[in-house]
């Protein structure tokens, strides 16, 4: 049981860590897809199949595509895909801050006594999720819908070229 979890965790963390260190952005994005797939595997392990499929659809399917498009749209030449190495000072300070957060979090988790919950995996059917979404959380669902619409329109507006300074955009 735990062995499966450890394998999933190691694969996910490994892929994410390598993705964050690579120079080639395309490779980073591809490794992150593996990492997200790992997270989806964790959801499956935990018995939340619906969330796992949502994760696959949204992250592995959609977000990864948006990322790849962003990578391809923001380069000027083929060589531009590899980013220049970052300054050592920034990296070191990043590692210190990140390591401190990690230490504190793990320390807190280990130090906190936690009630061990039910051993059988709680089951949740798609029907239950549907009933909850349409019943208890109907208002939230509507708001999320509005949010997504606004985000979509906003993304288009932000990314679309300015009408006024066309001369600057067209090469």
């Amino acid at each position: 049981m735990n062995a499966v979890l450890i394998v999933i965790a190691l694969v996910t963390l490994g892929a994410a860590a390598v993705a964050m260190t690579l120079r080639n952005l395309i490779h980073s994005a591809l490794l992150l897809i593996a990492s997200w797939a790992g997270v989806a595997a964790f959801y499956l392990w935990a018995g939340a199949e619906f969330v796992a499929f949502a994760e696959i659809l949204v992250y592995v399917g959609a977000v990864s595509m948006v990322v790849l498009f962003a990578v391809l749209l923001t380069r000027r030449s083929r060589a531009d895909l590899t980013v220049t190495p970052d300054s050592a000072g920034r990296a070191i300070s990043g590692f210190i801050a990140g390591g401190a957060v990690c230490g504190v979090l793990v320390g807190a988790i280990v130090a906190t006594p936690m009630g061990v919950g039910s051993s059988p995996t709680p089951t949740v059917t798609v029907k239950q999720i549907g009933v909850q979404l349409m019943g208890t959380h109907a208002a939230s669902l509507l708001i999320v819908g509005v949010l997504l619409t606004v985000a979509l329109l906003g993304a288009i507006v932000i990314a679309s070229a300015d009408r006024t300074d066309d001369s600057e955009d067209t090469p």
């Binding site: 920034r90 300070s93 990043g94 801050a97 990140g98 401190a100 957060v101 504190v104 979090l105 320390g107 807190a108 130090a111």
Partner: peptide
């Protein structure tokens, strides 16, 4: 932006340490 994020991280660590 990096600076802001770093300060958030450090602030979080300090907060948790104070609580612990």
């Amino acid at each position: 932006a990096h600076g802001y994020l770093r300060i958030i991280a450090i602030g979080f660590v300090v907060l948790v340490l104070i609580m612990m």
